[in-house]
Amino acid sequence: MENPLKVLELYSGIGGMHYALLDGGYANAEVVCSIDISPAASLVYKHNFPCTTHCERSIEGFSAEDFDRMGFNTIMMSPPCQPFTRLGLQKDVDDPRSRSFLHLMKLLPAMQSPPNYILMENVKGFENSKAHELFCKVLKQLGFSVVEFLLSPKQFGIPNSRLRYYLLAKHNQKEFPDEVNQLGKVFDDIPLCLKRFCNNTGSKENPTKTLEQFLEEPSSISDEYGLPEKTLLRYLNVMDIVNPVSKSSTCFTKSYGYYAEGTGSVLNTGSTLDMSNVLANKLRYFTPTEVANLMCFPEQFSFPDGFTRKQKYKLLGNSLNVYVVSCLLKFLVT
């Protein structure tokens, strides 16, 4: 890496990409501007990064000249995933939420100084989309080398499943190692050339951690996190129930705590699980802090006063795993 990283953080959300940059420990690196259209996410971002220039507006309002004036050499982004999900009806480029990403594809070729590096995160399924095809075509025309992954935190030794698509791109004749220099392949494992940037990869030498390392002190958990009787009686059989020594948990979505099935694990704090006496079980939701811990946000991350539990879950569910992105960023720029 010749020059300090100057990052444009697009679709910045609550700052997961920014924290991944900080986790890398790069000298003189900075986020020159963060952009997100969500008022709630922007409040959280500015609360945690008050010194970063943040724009609460759509990317469609920016020109190539605007981007050139920012002086960034790296783009980190997580575009809206709904156009590529079943719940979002998989409308792909026809979804209005894809417009800003399509606009970005027009901006990159028009820039006088395109970035040296691009790191993008999205949902599994993006790799089969028309948007993916168009974006890779733009990157190829601009001379980027591209590597793609489908990875989950579980592969990095973190007891949480969150399978996501990642695209890494280098500009100006910068090549990736031969091990991953295979055009069109999406890697679903951690190659050796990436492992050297990871402290813990869920291997025999570095086993996956247990959930208890990510939990708050039991004495600090209020009764509001206990599962209501109605939920226990109706949905216990379809819930993913884990305990503190478990080495896995399911993906926490933006609907966690609202819908019972398929939105994230619940924690059994009792000694056993009694399916014959449902109400005797001591089950609770993971707190927003615990979800943030599993997504590897640092201890200093916080929400501004006034945010509800539902809002916190929603914003975290739309975010990313900081540690996974940090490892990929190191691999990209080194």
Rank of each mutant, 00 (worst) to 15 (best):
N3H: 08
P4Y: 00
L5A: 01
K6N: 04
K6R: 14
E9H: 11
G15V: 07
G16M: 10
M17K: 06
M17N: 07
D23M: 11
G25M: 07
G25Q: 02
A27P: 03
N28C: 03
A29H: 02
E30Q: 09
C33G: 01
C33F: 09
S34T: 13
I35Y: 08
D36T: 04
D36Y: 03
I37K: 07
A41W: 12
V44L: 12
N48S: 01
C51P: 00
T52W: 10
T53M: 08
E56G: 03
I59S: 07
E65Y: 00
F67H: 00
M70Q: 08
P79M: 07
P80R: 10
C81W: 13
Q82A: 03
F84Y: 15
K91Q: 15
D92L: 11
V93I: 15
L102D: 05
L102Q: 15
H103W: 12
Q112D: 08
P115H: 05
P115G: 01
M120W: 06
M120A: 05
K124F: 04
G125H: 14
G125F: 13
S129V: 05
E133P: 04
L134Y: 10
L134A: 01
V138Y: 01
L139F: 12
F144W: 09
S145Y: 14
V147D: 01
L151A: 01
I158N: 06
L168Q: 01
K170T: 13
N172A: 13
F176G: 07
P177L: 11
P177Q: 07
D178P: 07
Q182K: 15
Q182I: 15
L194V: 15
R196I: 09
C198D: 08
N200H: 12
K204I: 15
K204F: 11
K209I: 05
T210F: 02
P218Q: 03
I221N: 01
D223Q: 09
K230P: 01
K230N: 06
L233E: 08
R234D: 10
V245N: 15
C251R: 14
Y256D: 04
Y258G: 12
Y258T: 13
E261S: 15
E261P: 04
S265T: 14
S271L: 15
L279W: 07
A280I: 00
A280D: 13
L283P: 06
Y285Q: 14
V291E: 04
N293C: 14
M295Q: 11
P298H: 12
Q300E: 13
D305N: 15
T308I: 11
K314H: 10
G317H: 04
S319Q: 12
N321E: 11
V322S: 13
V325E: 11
K330Y: 09
